[in-house]
Design a protein around this nucleic acid. Structure first.
Length: 562
RNA sequence: GCCGUCUUAGCUCAGCUGGUAGAGCAACCGCUUCGUAAGCGGUAGGUCCACGGUUCGAAUCCGUGAGACGGCACCA
């Protein structure tokens, strides 16, 4: 006798186990038709899910964000179904939901072509039109492994084999095609109405660059045709804001193949760049930072000590000079700032010492990573390193986070998210030190009143970090600023200060960047404003133009007046 | 770095199966002086990414390399 409690608090009593679909039908034919899935005691399930006990149930339709996810997930299945029909030799792997859509990875003897996509999308439309019922069943794990091996689906078998033996495996079938999936899915393919395949690309099996490359097909799916259209319009709008296009049109900068990943700044672009620096210089001086400048080329030894060479050696520009010494072109500013700190004796009275630099750094980024100004091999950072005692971490971090948020506000970025990244797998320093630095940074974030999400394993190799993510005018997120607590590098590079007991101690170093990469921040601003920068930044604030040549003399007067 | 696509005038792009290059916009020169995003006419502009190969002949076919673009991996 299941009692089903609906979201409005009303209850329905049934005299036998029933499905979500049947409950929806009992409420109304319209709801039954709109039902994509159900939420039973908080868990999302298929409409075929059998309710055999008292539960809280809500029917999920395409008005529900989860409903949209179900649609996208099922559309990924529809894609795989169509691919298997057209290319039976292709093997299926995984097909998750992503922002605005989905993808599905296939192993196939050759890459899919844009023409293939057209054919696949047409087949998907046919399968949707047939309104095939989507049916779930379960199978013991080992039976499922055998089942997929028998189908020749090696990748699926491998995925299932990595699931614990006790768990039953969910299989979804539609029109003679079966896929492993935890679901849930729409009740029938006819629910899938608004989708489009977007692009093909390579992607590594299990996301590991040592593995073979699969063919990934990206698609987008929506509840309604109009939503799909709106989405495509949004993409067009984003394309119009592309900083690479605007940069050329407004004559701000260019790049050319002799200097891959490096920027040639034109007068107007460099003027904007300098105003950004000028702004930051004023703001950080007011906050107690002192500007410094360290060499761009230093002996590789320093980078060995810091640990950068070991971790990032492959991504550093090295140079051998006639004196046979190996120098590195700096990829970071921290070791340089530590050298400045190390000159002379520092007392605890001197701390905090805040060194800031508009440091130009070079990183040999993988060729495939380069992207306009967003990812380059030579760029300027608004980088600062603050030397403090361990007791000062919280107070100083709070100050820095305030500064960061204030500055973003000045640029019109009010919507800022914060992420906390803790120890990565490849790191320097003891676990004990990591525990202390993670704790200190989290305490500081809380003291600053920040809400943050966890980003496990994404910290820098020397310390945990807070990452500041801006949301732009069209809703895209950009990670810019960062604040890192570092209990490792000062020691590795031999920095010390004298404490109140006349003892030598190792300072703590905070790393902070607000714009991050000036070049990248420049690009973000261009895209955020679609090229129409606020007048304090704009290289051209106004133009005086005559309508006919009869006004020439007058206009010359206007231009000449103050 | 990996997969795929691409590279032709300042920009955006045509150029079918090989017969030594075209358009629109921009520029320049005239004309027009017209009230809210493309007035009219004309002129000029190209090592067809680079290097090798096939061929009587290569922008076109093949190979190598570079760069760009879209993803993946990476991102101190």
């Amino acid at each position: 006798m299941p009692v089903v409690t609906l979201p409005d608090g009303s209850q329905k009593i049934f005299d036998r186990p029933i499905t979500v679909d049947e409950v929806a039908a009992s409420i109304g034919a319209g709801l039954r038709k709109a039902a994509l899935a159900g939420r039973v005691d908080g868990k999302v399930v298929d409409t075929s899910f059998v309710i055999d006990r008292d539960v809280a149930l809500s029917i999920i339709t395409d008005k529900d964000p989860v409903g949209l996810e179900v649609i996208r997930h099922s559309t990924a299945h529809l894609l795989a179904h169509a691919v298997k029909q057209l290319f039976p030799e292709a093997q299926v792997t995984i097909g998750p939901v992503i922002e605005d859509g989905f993808y599905y990875d296939f192993a196939y003897k050759r890459p899919f072509t844009p023409e293939d996509l057209v054919a696949i999308e047409a087949r998907m439309a046919e399968l949707a039109k047939q309104d095939l019922p989507v049916k779930r069943r379960e199978m013991p794990r080992d039976a499922a492994v055998a089942f997929f091996k028998n189908l020749g689906e090696q990748y699926k078998a491998e995925i299932i084999a990595s699931i614990p033996a006790g768990e039953p495996i969910g299989l979804y079938g539609q029109g003679g095609w079966v896929d492993l999936c935890r679901g849930p899915h729409v009740p029938s393919t006819g629910k899938l109405k608004a989708f489009k395949l977007m692009k093909v690309a390579g992607a590594y099996w299990r996301g590991d660059s040592r593995n073979e490359m699969l063919q990934r097909i990206y698609g987008t799916a929506w509840a309604k045709e109009q939503d799909l259209k709106d989405y495509l319009t949004r993409l067009e709008e984003a394309e119009k804001r592309d900083h690479r296009k605007i940069g050329r049109e407004l004559d701000l900068f260019h790049m050319q193949e002799e200097a891959p990943g490096a920027v040639f700044w034109h007068p107007k672009g460099w003027g904007i760049f300098q105003r950004l620096i000028g702004y930051m210089r004023t703001a950080q001086e007011a906050a107690g930072f002192q500007e410094v400048n360290a060499p761009e080329i230093m002996d590789a030894v320093l980078w060995q000590q810091s640990g950068h060479l070991e971790k990032f050696g492959e991504n550093m520009f090295m140079t051998q000079t006639p004196d046979e010494r190996v120098y590195a072109i700096k990829p970071m500013n921290c070791p340089g700032h530590v050298q400045i700190f190390k000159q002379g004796l520092r007392s605890h009275h001197d701390l905090p010492m805040r060194f800031a630099e508009f440091g130009k750094v070079h990183r040999y980024e993988p060729s495939g990573a380069l992207h306009g100004l967003m990812r380059v091999r030579a760029f300027t950072q608004d980088d600062a390193h603050i030397f403090i005692t361990e007791e000062q971490i919280t107070e100083e971090s709070v100050k820095v986070t305030r500064l960061i948020l204030d500055i973003y506000r000045d640029f019109g970025f009010d919507d800022v998210r914060v992420k906390f990244s803790d120890r990565p797998p490849k790191r320097v320093g003891s676990d004990e030190i990591w525990t202390r630095s993670e704790q200190a940074l989290q305490d500081a974030a809380r003291a600053a009143g920040l809400e943050f999400t966890l980003n496990p394993g994404e910290g820098a190799f020397y310390g945990p970090k807070l990452e500041f993510v801006l949301r732009d005018a069209i809703g895209r997120d950009w990670q810019c600023g960062t604040l890192q607590v570092d209990l490792n590098l000062p020691g590795r590079l031999g920095a010390t200060y004298i404490d109140e007991h006349s003892q030598r101690r190792t300072p703590v170093m905070l790393h902070r960047a607000i714009f991050g990469s000036l070049d990248r921040f420049f690009a973000i601003l261009l895209e955020h404003h679609a090229g129409r920068l606020p007048s304090w930044l704009a290289p051209v604030q106004c133009v005086v133009m005559p309508i006919t040549d009869r006004q020439d003399a007058y206009v010359a007067g206007v231009v000449g007046s103050p």
